[in-house]
């Protein structure tokens, strides 16, 4: 093989880390949630890459096909995507309430208001 065997993994790791960076470094709460979403989506890519079989078909049984990609990671990630969006929704609702209570959704400014 070429040097591509681990290419998927490494790009996925770079993606994860860019999401993680955004969620730590940026002060805006919605930005943090965007970073979190990128982080999670990259983990989904990790799972799907693990499940991929070259020259295999999508795991929908069809006559004459004998090589499929692994369906199990797909199942897990379907669940994880839904869990992710549920978390995002709750986080956004919190951000809206925080804006109502403090008049800002910037983390640094929240710290400046003592109570």
């Amino acid at each position: 093989m070429t040097g591509l065997e681990h290419y998927n993994y490494w790009i996925v790791i770079a993606l994860m880390m860019s999401g993680l960076y955004a969620l730590i470094a940026r002060g805006n709460l919605i930005r943090k949630l965007i970073g979190l979403n990128i982080f999670q989506a990259s983990v989904f890519l990790l799972y799907i890459s693990v499940g991929f079989v070259r020259d295999g078909a999508a795991p929908i049984l069809a006559p004459g096909v004998d090589s499929y990609s692994n369906p199990l990671p797909h199942v897990l990630i379907l669940t994880a995507i839904v869990v992710g969006v549920a978390t995002t929704a709750l986080g956004l609702a919190l951000a809206v309430r925080i804006h109502g209570a403090y008049g800002t959704i910037d983390d640094d400014q929240l710290d400046r208001q003592r109570d």
């Binding site: 890459s49 499940g51 991929f52 499929y68």
Partner: peptide, 9 residues
């Protein structure tokens, strides 16, 4: 990557 259901979701 053959994950059509995941892609759709």
């Amino acid at each position: 990557l053959d994950a059509v259901d995941v892609a759709f979701t």
